[in-house]
């Protein structure tokens, strides 16, 4: 749909600086408290980078789209240097958006409200192919918000059946999945012992928007609950804290 220049578009711009007080009833952002420790500063930086930089990026992307739209009406501009430059600008903006989105995912994981509860492993592993020596594994309970775990297992299964090895060790249930080859474009990167979050921040360019991002998000969410997510030998390992008796 294109603009119809023959129909008047009535517009009123009202940006009058005639009132000097802040908007009444407005709320200070609750999550912008000035942090006092390095971890909080890093978290605040995540938030700022992921949220605040998106706004000007959006402006650049949309402006490139608007110019492209206008150029489309000029046949002589097609394929010319301006069109090529705009295309490159748009691709660059989308690449930047993909990387900012990865930071947003991590930032939100750090702030997401979690609802840990006693959850049976049957709930966690239902629908997957489980290999375990633990008697009545389904009845073993862990103390986590199950949603991030289920989301990660679903992401790893990628619509198919996921094979999960499970065992109880110490005060946790260890899950070991051999799904990385199927979901990580370059499995070489997870051959060595590392965490998905370290992989992600090590190369946003390489991993943003890939399953490594989903794993890093799950790592943040599980570590907040006393669990862990780790890559080793090309496999993904997850530790879920056992629910304590009487908990």
């Amino acid at each position: 749909m294109t603009a119809d220049a023959t129909v008047p578009h009535r517009t009123t711009t009202a940006a009058t600086p005639d009132v000097t007080t802040a908007a009444a009833g407005a709320e200070a952002p609750a999550d912008r408290i000035v942090p006092s420790d390095p971890a909080a500063v890093a978290d605040s930086l995540y938030y700022s980078v992921s949220h605040d930089l998106r706004s000007p990026l959006l402006t650049m992307s949309l402006s490139a789209d608007l110019i492209t739209d206008a150029l489309a009406r000029l046949p002589e501009a097609a394929g010319g240097p301006v069109a090529v430059a705009l295309d490159a600008m748009r691709h660059g903006a989308r690449d930047m958006e993909r990387m900012l989105q990865a930071l947003t995912v991590i930032s939100r994981a750090q702030r997401r409200t979690l609802r840990p509860s006693r959850v049976g492993m049957q709930t966690i592993l239902g629908g997957h192919l489980v290999i375990s020596d633990v008697a009545r594994l389904g009845a073993v309970e862990v103390a986590v918000d199950p949603v991030p775990v289920l989301e990660l297992l679903d992401a790893l299964a990628a619509g198919g059946t996921l094979e999960v090895r499970a065992r109880v060790e110490g005060d946790g249930v260890l899950l070991d999945c051999d799904a990385l080859g199927a979901v990580v474009a370059d499995p070489e990167v997870v051959q060595h012992d590392t965490s998905p979050l370290a992989l992600l921040v090590g190369s946003l360019q390489h991993h943003a928007g890939t399953p490594v991002e989903a794993m890093a998000r799950a790592q943040v969410l599980l570590e907040r609950q006393g669990g862990a997510v780790h890559c080793a030998g090309g496999r993904l390992r997850m530790r879920l804290p056992l629910a304590r008796t009487g908990e």
Binding site: T12, T13, A14, A23, G25
Partner: peptide, 16 residues
């Protein structure tokens, strides 16, 4: 094009 659009870009006095 027939829709009347007002833009308010100054955060001050928005309640009023």
């Amino acid at each position: 094009p027939q829709v009347e659009v007002t833009t308010l870009t100054d955060p001050r006095g928005l309640d009023r």
